[in-house]
């Protein structure tokens, strides 16, 4: 449907051939924009609806008192569906620690939550297909579990700011929403998300379209293909400052992949964008000491790089 729309626009409205440079670039732009925006609206709506059933207060309740192994897997899975804007990082962290949830499990949740989110899912699905999207989710969950386990083993409790342990947590029953409220909440979220990111998306797709039409084939194979071992670590480092621009970055990656970037490199780039961000580290600094932040970043970065290599081997 979206392809037909793009075909029609390029050939019948602009009278260009889709195989020409300009025609190809315009086609890429129209096709990606319409497809991704439509998918985003639908997916954010569905996921927000599910999310309204798992607020962090409930996650905390479900995780506390569970056996470590079970809690760890549960934390990673709940991270996938749980709502959590980065400005809630601090209260969330404190709430978990206060509830007696082990530090490693808290980190598992903090890692899985941003990596596997609906926006990156839509982008991955529409750009790389369901196989890579599923693999991304799977590896995101595994990364969260392993990284959390490592942080737990390192016994980092003393690197949590001491005031965290002194806070008294109140108990407040949060009122249940009605189905209608949930639907309104989901609709608002879908509209807000699209409003927030459409510009980044258009810019990203615009640059992607330009690369698509004008960068020579195989140009990148030499620099960022499978054979270059440095491609994955470089992608991870480049991903960190792009925090809020996951949406804009992916269409560029798509175009770059067509020009020869290996899929694992592209995926670790995506993971680095979502999992490691400066604003998040600044927030975490309020509750944990620099050493633990350093370890958190190192463990996650090593994990993402490993995943990049694994993907490049199996895909």
């Amino acid at each position: 449907m979206f392809k037909k729309l793009a075909d029609w626009f390029v050939e019948d409205v602009l009278h260009l051939s889709v195989t020409s440079k300009l025609g190809g670039a315009v086609h890429f732009f129209i096709y990606d924009t319409t497809k991704i925006l439509a998918l985003l609206l639908v997916m954010v709506f569905i996921i927000s609806f599910i999310r309204s059933y798992v607020p962090p207060e409930k996650v905390k309740m479900w995780l506390s008192g569970k056996k470590k192994g079970i809690a760890s897997v549960l934390a990673a899975l709940l991270g996938v569906v749980s709502p959590f804007c980065s400005c809630s990082t601090v209260p969330l962290f404190i709430g978990f620690v206060e509830a007696g949830i082990p530090l490693g499990i808290t980190f598992t949740f903090l890692i899985s939550s941003p990596i596997v989110n609906e926006i990156s899912l839509v982008m991955l699905f529409s750009i790389f297909g369901w196989k890579i999207a599923v693999l991304y989710v799977l590896f995101g969950i595994i990364l969260a579990i392993i990284a959390g386990w490592v942080i737990g083993k390192l016994r980092m409790e003393k690197y949590v700011e001491s005031y965290v342990y002194e806070i008294k947590l109140g108990e407040t029953p949060i009122e249940e929403m009605t189905i209608k409220q949930r639907l309104v909440y989901a609709k608002n979220n879908a509209v807000d998300t699209v409003k927030k990111i459409w510009l980044f998306l258009l810019i990203g797709i615009g640059i992607g379209a330009w690369i698509h039409g004008y960068v020579p084939e195989d140009f990148l194979v030499r620099y960022a293909g499978k054979d270059n071992l440095f491609a994955v670590p470089i992608a991870v480092v480049l991903g960190v400052p792009l925090y809020s621009n996951a949406v804009g970055s992916l269409p560029m990656i798509e175009a770059l992949m067509l020009k020869g970037i290996a899929p694992g490199t592209a995926l670790s780039f995506m993971m680095a964008i979502t999992a490691l961000s400066f604003p998040e580290m600044v927030l975490l600094r309020k509750v944990i000491k620099p050493k633990l932040i350093g370890i958190f970043v190192a463990v996650v970065a090593i994990g993402i790089i490993a995943i990049g290599y694994i993907f490049n081997i199996i895909l």
């Binding site: 209260p91 008294k168 109140g170 407040t172």
Partner: peptide, 20 residues
């Protein structure tokens, strides 16, 4: 933060009317 947490709230923004 300590004051926010006293209400048992983990996701912000939250609204409290007459301490509820």
């Amino acid at each position: 933060i300590p004051q926010i947490m006293r209400y048992g709230v983990m996701s912000t923004p939250a609204l409290v009317i007459d301490e509820k």
